[in-house]
């Protein structure tokens, strides 16, 4: 499968590793929609198990430039196989295409990633905060957001 992907997408695939028996692909974000569509329709990855972001700000000895990575955790029930697809996103332009049209479950996962990291998903039908409230400033799971910085909604004693 990996050979097949490398053949089709060529230099769009930045890296491929096996993380503790799970195939992990790192791909350029321009190829995301094409790749998701290929994985879902041709390789039968019918479950989107999880979608979230990771902030690598200040990660020790990091070998790449970008700050965020979006992780797509796919599962194929037919082949009982997992695949993790990672898409790098830069700090200057934290945006990526939405995959709601492929997986309905991506709807809330993308909203959560937007809420927690401020990553914009282009084409998402209803991109707004989900866990935090509208008045909240900033994105709490970013590494530069202090752990104990509270923003009360009402006056507390």
């Amino acid at each position: 499968m990996i050979e097949n992907l490398k053949h089709i997408f060529g230099n769009k695939i930045i890296d491929y590793v096996k993380n503790y028996d799970i195939d992990t692909l790192v791909a350029k974000k321009e190829a995301l929609i094409q790749m998701i569509s290929f994985l879902k329709n041709e390789e039968k990855f019918d479950f989107l198990m999880d979608l979230f972001a990771i902030d690598y700000l200040g990660y020790p000895d990091k070998k790449f430039e970008h700050r965020y990575e979006i992780v797509y955790n796919l599962y194929s029930f037919e082949n009982n196989k997992r695949l993790i697809l990672k898409v790098p996103v830069t700090e200057e332009n934290p945006s990526v295409d939405s995959i709601v049209s492929f997986y309905s479950s991506a709807d809330w996962y993308e909203r959560e990633a937007y809420d927690m990291y401020g990553i914009v998903f282009n084409g998402h039908p209803n991109l707004k905060r989900i866990l935090m409230y509208e008045e909240f400033q900033g994105h709490p799971l970013r590494k530069d957001y202090p752990l104990k910085k509270r923003q009360p909604r009402i006056d507390l004693k």
């Binding site: 709490p140 202090p146 752990l147 923003q151 009402i154 004693k157």
Partner: peptide, 13 residues
Amino acid sequence: YDNYAVVDGIDKI
């Protein structure tokens, strides 16, 4: 839960 999300004690409300 001493973090950004939680109110530290309802007696503040």
